[in-house]
Computed example of a mutant assay.
Amino acid sequence: MEANSTAQAMHTVAEVQHVYKTNVKPSMRPKVNSSRLAYQALLESWDEDRIEFVEQFKVLLVTTANRILGVCEICTGGVAATYVDIKLIMTAALKANATGVILAHNHPSGNLQPSNADKEITKKIVMAGQILEIRILDHIIVTTDGYFSFQDEGLL
Score class of each variant (00 low, 15 high):
K31A: 09
V62K: 03
G77V: 06
N116S: 15
D47A: 08
T91N: 15
H139P: 03
N4V: 15
N97R: 14
K119S: 00
A80H: 10
K95P: 03
Y147R: 04
H11A: 06
E133W: 10
L42T: 01
Q113C: 04
M28K: 12
I74G: 05
L61N: 12
E52I: 08
L155H: 00
K58V: 07
E153S: 14
K21D: 01
V54A: 02
L103A: 05
K124E: 02
Y20T: 01
Q56R: 11
M127D: 09
S109L: 08
R36F: 09
V24C: 08
F148S: 01
T99G: 06
K58I: 05
A93N: 11
G146S: 07
L60A: 02
Y147M: 04
T99Q: 09
K31S: 11
I68W: 11
N97A: 13
A117F: 11
V142I: 15
Y20R: 04
S35I: 03
N23A: 13
V13N: 05
A7L: 13
E44T: 14
M1V: 09
D47Q: 07
I131Q: 13
A14P: 02
Q17Y: 12
N4A: 12
D47R: 09
L137S: 06
A65H: 12
L43N: 02
S109E: 07
Q151W: 01
L42W: 02
M10Q: 14
G154P: 03
H139V: 00
R36Y: 10
L42D: 02
S109F: 07
G100K: 15
S149R: 07
A41D: 07
L112K: 15
D118S: 15
D138L: 03
S27K: 14
H18Q: 12
N23F: 11
I141E: 05
V59C: 07
A38F: 03
Q151C: 04
Q151A: 07
T143A: 05
E153Q: 15
I125N: 11
R50T: 14
A65G: 10
E15M: 14
Y39G: 01
R36S: 09
A98F: 07
G154H: 00
L156G: 05
T63P: 00
S115V: 08
E52R: 12
H139R: 04
F53Q: 13
H105P: 08
T63M: 00
Y147K: 07
A65N: 15
E55L: 10
G70V: 00
A80F: 10
V79D: 14
L37M: 15
D145L: 13
V16G: 04
S45C: 06
K124C: 06
R135K: 13
I141H: 11
G77H: 05
T122P: 01
P26N: 14
M90V: 06
T144D: 12
M127I: 04
H139K: 04
L88H: 15
K58S: 12
T22G: 05
S109D: 12
P114R: 12
P108R: 04
Y83C: 06
I141D: 08
A14G: 01
G77T: 05
A81Q: 01
M90T: 06
L43W: 03
V13S: 06
R67T: 00
S149C: 10
P30T: 09
G129I: 00
I134Q: 00
G100F: 12
V142R: 14
P30D: 10
L155F: 01
N97W: 05
L94I: 11
A128F: 02
G70T: 01
V13W: 05
M28F: 11
